[in-house]
Each structure stands twice: as structure tokens, then as C-alpha cells.
Design a protein around this nucleic acid. Structure first.
Lengths: 213, 213
DNA sequence: TGCGCTACCGTACGGCGTATCCATAAGGTA
DNA sequence: TACCTTATGGATACGCCGTACGGTAGCGCA
């Protein structure tokens, strides 16, 4: 097996899936592939280019979204698929919005999204399109980052009450008991655990429909 | 000068403002403060806690937003101030959404935002509030990340045409000339350079009014 | 005077990205 | 067959990083 950019990216993704982006080093990746570290620099100029490779591989996964005849359904499908891919590869959220996504598959996804949105009746000119694409992407980036962060903290502190009280619990409850943050306290304590997918869907629809009308 | 968490945070912020988060190391920070590296670990348990300190210092800056009598004006003021602070300290965008913001000032900002939004007529119960706060925060996080990323690439590649053509230009124009990304091409080529602040404001208002009605 | 405690610091370890140089194998030519 | 060229892969090394650890100097107090 002669080693290739695709193979390197696949191994890197697998490593990052398990150990996160911090746990992905050029050296470990090389060891995983059974070669010396410097070998990888024949295929990639930088660690950062390695990340670009990984990102575009994820976009390839996203780009497989089915084309719907309705522009609205197409847009929703793409963003939901983005969410699915992000939850499958949480490190992806660390890179979301942090660098320009210019790989071929990223461009393809961007093209599908923009093309669909350009069919919305409210989109009169290219400036409208730019604003709308920007707003939607911004929401999705932020929402996915938040969701992944919540997942991570829930995982490390544990969802159950006992470990929660041993980690962030004391500090947070102490802060909330000061009475200086009543609304936040209500959100934390009384706020039901909303279904993340439903919340994402609901907010996405609200913004999409609000912005295209 | 006896060294304190506040002083450490201030020096760290200054360093990060100039050299970015990557250019901020515990060792450099210690040297800047005229002490040995390990000295800082008497005030901070981790590099990560150092970042938390810095983040909360920025939230302190944001929290100074004036209180308006109208909830809508309050919300807008807070988010605009968030944007201002982020553009003053671009590294802040790298941390946005990537970790829970639980410092006292972050909580204060969250409290002000949530309290204001809870006065919106459309907010009936706490679940509404949770969804709306989540959606707005998500948009702002994503929008600021994107804006900072654009600023950075514009800075390194240069805004003028000549350097642009020497860096990303060739690759991107080649990709766009394939004809596979017509809509993206139109966005890049024909899309006017929209005023970032206006775009932010416009989108924020659209989402805010769409979601609270 | 002696003693424990605290504040502080120097050193060191393991890991990182990557520049540079070396060994070896492969293949073409005389 | 013998030699030279060229590509392929690897070992080593440099300068950084975060931080664990052990030691020391100064000081309050018995």
C-alpha cells in the first residue's frame, strides 16, 4: 500500500475521532501508518494542510446529500447532514469557521447551498444571497460548536448527579446561589433538557423562514 | 508588583492580541512578567485555566454595555459590544463556543441577555427562552468567527489584487473556472464587498425579530 | 536558637512540528 | 557485469511547548 493523501487523511480522521485534534500529532499519525514522521511531508506541506485534507474529506461526506426538487428541502438536508457529520467527527466543530473551507468538496457543498438558496423568492440580487448564506452558515457553525462543547463537558463531568456535583457543580451552584444570575439559574435548573436535534431543526427553520421572507 | 491573576490575565491578553493564541505560551508570558515559568502555576492550575481567565476579562469588557429600557435595544447593545470586543481581541473568536463560559462576568453577560430576552412578548416559558438564547448566541458565535477568519486571510494574503493573485488566487480562480461552482463564483466575483458591521447588524435584527414573533 | 512553612525558582522530562542529512534500493547505460 | 543516477524512506536533531518535581531562601513563631 503506497500511501496517499486520501489514505493519510483517512487515518488522521480515525485518530482524531478517537483522541481529538489535540491527540492527533504528525508523529502518532506516522506511527499509525507504519512510516517515519517525515514521510508525511512528501504528501502534505504542513500539519495545517493535513487538517485541510481532513476537513474536505468530511465535506465529501456532507456533499452526498440528496438533491430535493424544493430548494427549502435541499437546504435543510444539507445542514442536517452537516450536523450529522459534525457529531460523527466532533473535531470538525473545532475547525468550523476557523479557516476558509476551500477544498473541492467544501466548494461543492457551498455551491449546492447557495444554488438552492438563490431560488428562494426573497432573494433578489447577489447581495441578498450573500447575506442569507452568511447568516445561515453563521448560525450552523455556532450551533454545532455549542452542541459539541456541551456533549464534551457532559461526557467528562458525567450526566449523572453525583459526578456533576463533584466537578462543575459546586462552583456553578455557588455562583447561581448568589442571586446575581436569576435568569441563568432558571435556565440551568428549570430548563428542561431539550432534544438537541429538535432544537437545531426548530431554530434552523425559524431563521431560514424568517430570513427568506 | 506582587503578581496576581488579574495582572497575569492582562499580560496574557496583550500578548495574545499581538501574536495570537498560538504565540501565547506560558513561558513567554512568564518572561514578559519577569518571573520563571512555574511561577504562574501558583495562580492558575492549567494553561487552559489561563485562557478561561482571559475570556472572562473580555466578558467584563462586554458587560459594561449600557442598560436600555427597551429589551430589544439591550440585546442589540450587548451583541454589538461582543462584536467590538471580539474585533479588538481576535483570539477571543478562537475560543467562542469552544468551551463553556462560566466566569463571573460571562455569567453576568448571559444574565443580562437572558433577562432582556425574557421580556420579549413571544417568550412564553423557559423553553422558549432557552431556544431563543441558544439561537442568537449560535449566530453571533458563528458570525464573529467568520468575520475574524476573513480579516485574517485578508491580512495575510493582502487585499490588493497583486498579492491576492499570488496566493489563493490561482487555486481559487482555477477552481471557479471549472464551471462546477457557478453560484459560488458569482458570489466571489460579483458579490460586492458588504460592510461587515452593517451585515452583522442586518442579520442580527432579522433573526432577532424573526425569532421573537 | 531552632524549626516548620511558605514563596519561589531551576532543572528536567516527554512530546511536538519540521529542517536537514544519510542510507539504501531501483533502474538505466556501457 | 559494473557503474552511476535518481528516487524513496528514515534517522537525527533543533528549538519549542506544558508542566512535574525537588530544592532553597526567607520568615514567623515556640
Amino acid at each position: 500500500m503506497p500511501l496517499s493523501r486520501a489514505k493519510i487523511a483517512a487515518a488522521a480522521i480515525q485518530l482524531a475521532d478517537v483522541h481529538g485534534l489535540d491527540g492527533l500529532s504528525v508523529r502518532k499519525l506516522a506511527k499509525e501508518l507504519g512510516v517515519g514522521p517525515m514521510r508525511l511531508y512528501d504528501y502534505v506541506v504542513n500539519r495545517s494542510e493535513l487538517l485541510d485534507l481532513m476537513v474536505d474529506a468530511i465535506y465529501a461526506q456532507i456533499a452526498e446529500a440528496d438533491q430535493h426538487s424544493q430548494w427549502r428541502a435541499t437546504v435543510l438536508a444539507i445542514y442536517h447532514r452537516t450536523r450529522d457529520a459534525t457529531l460523527d467527527h466532533e473535531w470538525f466543530s473545532d475547525l468550523l469557521g476557523g479557516r476558509p473551507h476551500l477544498g473541492p468538496h467544501a466548494l461543492a457543498v457551498g455551491e449546492s447551498t447557495a444554488a438552492a438558496l438563490s431560488q428562494a423568492p426573497a432573494v433578489r440580487d447577489i447581495d441578498d444571497l450573500q447575506r442569507i448564506v452568511g447568516a445561515l452558515n453563521a448560525f450552523v457553525i455556532g450551533a454545532l460548536r455549542r452542541e459539541v462543547t456541551e456533549r464534551r463537558t457532559a461526557r467528562t463531568t458525567g450526566t449523572d448527579v453525583t459526578t456533576w456535583q463533584k466537578t462543575l457543580g459546586p462552583y456553578l451552584t455557588r455562583m447561581l446561589k448568589t442571586g446575581r444570575y436569576p435568569t441563568v439559574a432558571r435556565l440551568v435548573i428549570d430548563g428542561a433538557h431539550l432534544n438537541p436535534e429538535e432544537t437545531f431543526h426548530h431554530n434552523l427553520i425559524t431563521i431560514l423562514d424568517g430570513i427568506t421572507s
